[in-house]
């Protein structure tokens, strides 16, 4: 699971052009969006969705109420991606 979290952090940094940010700067449970965390915005959410689809063939539905929870933190995203990869 820790390997998956690191992978997700690297994906976030690369896909969102987070200059000067390293995986160590992103805590597992800090909010990715809005204040008090990484401070990402709605364009980042779309960009991240595309990166996840490309790398893990993850299909995200815009209407899925679970997205907000899945995208809340690195831990949640890692768990979500892990379950998808195992199911596939």
């Amino acid at each position: 699971m820790d390997a998956m979290k690191l992978e997700i952090k690297r994906l976030i940094i690369e896909a969102l052009d987070l200059e000067d940010t390293t995986p160590a700067d992103i805590s597992d449970d800090a909010p990715l969006f809005g204040d008090g965390g990484l401070g990402l915005d709605s364009i980042d959410a779309l960009e991240l969705g595309i990166a996840l689809r490309k790398k893990y063939q993850l299909q995200l539905e815009a209407s899925d109420a679970g997205n907000r929870e899945h995208f809340r933190s690195v831990s949640n995203l890692a768990r979500f991606v892990q379950s998808h990869v195992q199911a596939a």
């Binding site: 969102l16 052009d17 364009i43 779309l46 960009e47 595309i50 490309k54």
Partner: peptide, 10 residues
């Protein structure tokens, strides 16, 4: 045939 980047588009 790749998805467009929302950040680039915007």
């Amino acid at each position: 045939k790749e998805a467009l980047s929302p950040a680039v588009f915007s």
